[in-house]
């Protein structure tokens, strides 16, 4: 699996929580993924919903997705077109939720630092990020960063296209 970003969204702040990614006031309304998208990052960056495009990549600081276990915080970004999130680290439940929805998350403190430091430059030149998820390699301009691959079990779920498909297959095998 390999992506080339359209745009890069740079959110260098640490501990961006699931309440600002998908506010609690909408969590108990039955919404489709597209409806969830309308509230994506609503309390954090109101431009995001208007300008996000298919294939965009988010680059964040540490502990991205802290707080609530709400899965909509993954789904709303994925449905908005986000192809991959690169961060210094992810909150535990967010990471699991992303595997279960087959949204690629990349842990790379070096890449996060580089992008944050060169934010203005990268944005003005409309630079793209190339992520080779299978081989654990990120390329931006002439910079190359490597990142750890998923553990085998997580990779199996991810490769199945998420936990719904994985569990379906498992149930079929057992009958």
């Amino acid at each position: 699996m390999r992506f080339k970003s359209q745009k890069i969204w740079i959110f260098p702040e640490d501990d961006i929580n699931t309440d600002v990614i998908f506010p609690g006031r909408y969590t108990y309304e039955p919404l489709s993924p597209d409806e969830m998208t309308r509230h994506a990052l609503e309390d954090y960056d109101s431009k995001f919903i208007e300008e996000v495009e298919d294939g965009d990549i988010i680059v964040a600081g540490s502990n991205f997705g802290a707080g609530s276990s709400r899965e909509q915080a993954v789904t709303c970004l994925q449905a908005a077109g986000i192809s991959c999130i690169i961060a210094k680290s992810f909150a535990r439940i967010y990471f699991r939720n992303a595997i279960n929805q087959a949204l690629p998350l990349v842990i790379s403190p070096e890449c996060s630092d580089f992008v944050t430091k060169n934010k203005e430059n990268l944005l003005s030149s409309k630079e793209k990020i190339d992520v080779d998820f299978d081989n654990g390699v990120i390329k931006i301009k002439d910079k190359v960063f490597s990142f750890p691959k998923l553990d085998d079990q997580a990779l199996q779920i991810f490769k199945a296209g998420g936990l719904v498909e994985y569990t379906k297959t498992r149930l079929k095998k057992s009958t």
């Binding site: 276990s69 709400r70 899965e71 993954v74 439940i93 939720n97 929805q101 994985y166 569990t167 149930l171």
Partner: peptide, 28 residues
């Protein structure tokens, strides 16, 4: 629910997970 850690007070391991994973545990 993320505050499932509460049950550690009773000497159990209260471990939070997400919705799809809960559905999967209900199933398998």
């Amino acid at each position: 629910d993320s505050h499932t850690t509460t049950h550690g007070a009773f000497g159990a391991a209260g471990i939070p997970i997400g919705r799809t994973e809960t559905a999967s545990v209900w199933a398998i």
